[in-house]
Simulated assay, not measured.
Amino acid sequence: MELDLFEADTHHPECAELIGGGMFFALGDHRGFLAHRESDGSLHIYTPCVPPRTGCPRSTSPPPTPPRPHWPGTSPTGHPPCGG
Score class of each variant (00 low, 15 high):
T77Y: 02
R31C: 01
S61G: 00
T54S: 15
A35P: 03
T74D: 01
Y46N: 10
I45S: 01
T10K: 13
T77V: 02
T10P: 02
F6S: 15
E17N: 08
P62N: 12
P76F: 05
G41T: 04
E38P: 00
A16W: 01
E7V: 08
T10F: 10
G78P: 00
V50Y: 09
P63M: 08
H79T: 04
L18M: 15
D29E: 15
D9G: 03
E2A: 10
W71T: 02
G28Y: 08
P64H: 06
I19T: 10
T77E: 11
G83Y: 07
H44A: 10
E2T: 14
H11R: 13
I45R: 02
E38I: 06
P51E: 11
I19P: 06
I19D: 04
P76E: 13
F33P: 02
P48G: 05
A16Y: 01
E14K: 01
L3T: 09
P52R: 07
S39N: 08
P13C: 01
L5K: 02
H44L: 14
L18H: 03
L18W: 00
G73E: 03
R37K: 14
F24K: 07
F25V: 08
R68M: 06
F6N: 07
R31A: 09
G55L: 11
H30D: 07
H36G: 11
T54P: 04
P13D: 11
L3R: 10
D29V: 00
S75M: 12
C56D: 14
L34W: 10
P72M: 10
C49L: 09
R31Y: 05
H36D: 04
M1E: 09
P62I: 00
E7I: 03
F24L: 13
P63Q: 13
P72I: 03
C49V: 02
E17Y: 05
L34D: 08
S75L: 04
L27F: 10
G22I: 04
E2G: 11
G32A: 09
C82S: 13
D4F: 15
S61D: 15
R68E: 14
R68K: 10
D40R: 00
L34E: 05
E14L: 07
A35G: 01
W71A: 07
R53I: 05
P13I: 10
G78I: 04
M1I: 11
G21F: 02
E2W: 08
T74W: 00
S42Y: 00
T60C: 01
S59H: 12
P13M: 12
T60N: 11
D40P: 01
C15E: 15
T74I: 06
H36Q: 09
P64D: 03
P67G: 06
L27I: 06
P72G: 05
P69N: 06
E38V: 03
P80R: 04
D29I: 00
E17D: 14
D40S: 09
G32I: 02
C56S: 11
R53A: 09
P51W: 03
E14Q: 03
F33C: 10
P62L: 05
G78M: 07
L18E: 13
S39L: 11
S75Q: 14
Y46K: 05
D4G: 09
T65W: 13
H36P: 10
H36Y: 12
T77L: 14
G73Y: 10
P67L: 02
L18A: 14
H79F: 14
I19F: 06
L27N: 11
P51S: 14
E38H: 06
H36T: 11
Y46F: 15
